[in-house]
Design a protein around this nucleic acid. Structure first.
Ligand code: FES
Ligand code: FES
Lengths: 136, 136
DNA sequence: CATAAATTGGACAATATTGTCCAAATAACC
DNA sequence: GGTTATTTGGACAATATTGTCCAATTTATG
């Protein structure tokens, strides 16, 4: 359902939120703890930096730090990484998804879309820090 | 959300169901009407044949014919084409999705999964033949 | 100032998905 | 029986996603 890149992004952000008391956290620690390929995770963190969800500093004692935990929603992360929204567009791939020119599944799909949107855009990272584990 | 392959598969089946009165329908007609690449659609129809959702005959006047419209559910098609279920597995990619070892989004995600499953496994192809259009 | 620890960015590699081409087999029809 | 219309299956090509490697840059610290 989600791309790997998004999965790593969300896991990274949850990890950063969990450890937000300690200053900058290096990539090596993040990827070790969320069990992700380090170099690939690096690229993803760069995107999160340009999306202003994370700040970074180079050099010794450098690393990443999450900013505005409360405001980062799952859907924002997906958009920042994949460039699209997951609930966007027609289920069957028509160029437009609208009630004026619906595809055969349209009216059933819009209901599901609503649920998906509340899932994506009502859950913030800071709600997730105290629940569950992220490693194998 | 859905792979292109699945989208073409569903569109093909809807088209076949719409024209089930006329005997075999050739690939060329299907892909013209659902606006899909012909050779790629051919591979997809082969999978639908081996999944026994469609029968085919070669040669002049040959083509494809849908069987058991009523029984073909969207989720069955996705499984036949992609080999997996779209609602399967952990949202964050953990190897198991379970309430015993939940990831941070698990309990919110299972609710969405239920909605997705009813969407996928309560809609059959023959419910869709009279609704909407499938072309650009 | 030298060294160590870190991000950044570019180039590359591997894999998966999407898509094309073509020869072979088959069936209908004249 | 030859021709035409079709599926089938294999090999291939293009693109997207995932992943790796490495040099350059930056910062802290002794
Ligand atoms: S038009 Fe296809 S889902 Fe809305
Ligand atoms: S364990 Fe992650 S969604 Fe269930």
């Amino acid at each position: 359902m989600l791309s790997k890149a998004c999965q790593y992004a969300i896991k990274s952000l949850i990890y950063l939120a969990k450890h937000n008391d300690r200053a900058y956290i290096p990539l090596s620690e993040i990827s070790k703890n969320i069990n992700s390929p380090e170099a690939f995770t690096s690229k993803i963190l760069q995107k999160l930096v340009s999306a202003k969800m994370v700040i970074s500093t180079k050099g010794s004692r450098g690393g990443f730090q999450i900013i505005n935990h409360e405001k980062i929603l799952l859907g924002d992360i997906v958009e920042a990484i994949d460039g699209s929204n997951l609930s966007e567009g027609c289920f069957l791939g028509l160029p437009e998804c609208s009630c004026q020119n619906p595809c055969p599944v349209h009216f059933k799909y819009v209901e599901l879309k609503n649920k998906l949107n509340t899932f994506l855009f009502q859950i913030s990272i800071d709600e997730l820090v105290d629940i569950g584990s992220m490693v194998i």
